[in-house]
Amino acid sequence: MDWTRILSNVAGELIAPTTAAYALAAIGLNVHFGLTGLLNFGQAGFMLLGAYGFAISTIAGWPLWAAVLVAIGCSVVFALVLGIPTLKLRGDYLAIVTIAAAEIVRIVGRSTALTNLTGASSGLRGDSYKETFQELSPFDDGTSTIGPFTYANNASNSWWVRIVGWALVLLACLLIWRLLNSPWGRVLKGIREDEDAVRSLGKNVYGYKMQALVLGGVIGSLAGVVYVMPRAVQPDSMGRPMTFWVWTILLLGGAATVFGPVLGSMLFWAALMLIKTVGRELIPSTVMRAEQIEQFGWIVVGVTLMLLVIFRPQGILGDKKELAINVR
């Protein structure tokens, strides 16, 4: 068995753009759920909107900064549209509304009626919107090898995507750390615990929830942009399962912590890669075919999510005394 290859594959996952994108999405969800207690089951919708916003405006010839602003704007509008009516609802209603809204985004996005805009279910090809981003890269074209990793400098699955993606993750962590330890974060924590108590102390709970929903959604939309950088905008790959993986990542690392989402994302993708590669090496294809090994990986994810929520809801980094999943 080729352990070097397996280990470098697994280590490659730790820094992969997808891992960064999911970490970022989980950080956004952390603002919703970890800090505020909002049950957002539509994070993939924010990501997909961000991806569409960025890709479509780039294809329309807009510069990078404008495209990023469009992505952010889409998620802000989505958050407001969702939040204005629903933030007064019970927690599980919010869950159903967000999951349905994200599905609507995906169904509308993949509809043949919008083929000219979104490319329908085949989505938007990566080459059509990557150029402005890659032009910004200070590196020359070519490939670089660092340690066991060899990637292109600028082309789609590149060092450049990795650098920008992880820089965004770092910035987001910094932001969350600052907010978590500020009076603003304190109000959110209070809302998570008991919003009526916070209301009785004169805080505009609705406004705070809205700010949290928008902020987490914006981070989610940036995650969407990072996610589609090494691939295409494919509505069907950004559906409910994506939201569920983001939740698993957040709960694995620890909600309401600064680095929980990052750790969760790294562990999640590295573990899946480990299962996949080791499984292919060790398990004869008569016992498990290659795609079965992959499916086995996802079964492990599902079981892990169940066990985590039951036995360790605070995740790896969380403090049980500080967080219990108990949202009204």
């Binding site: 992969a16 559906g239 409910r240 399962p241 993708w269 992959e294």
Partner: peptide
Amino acid sequence: VPTSATAASGLP
């Protein structure tokens, strides 16, 4: 919902 696996791996 054809999304089955969403694993990521590095090699383009």
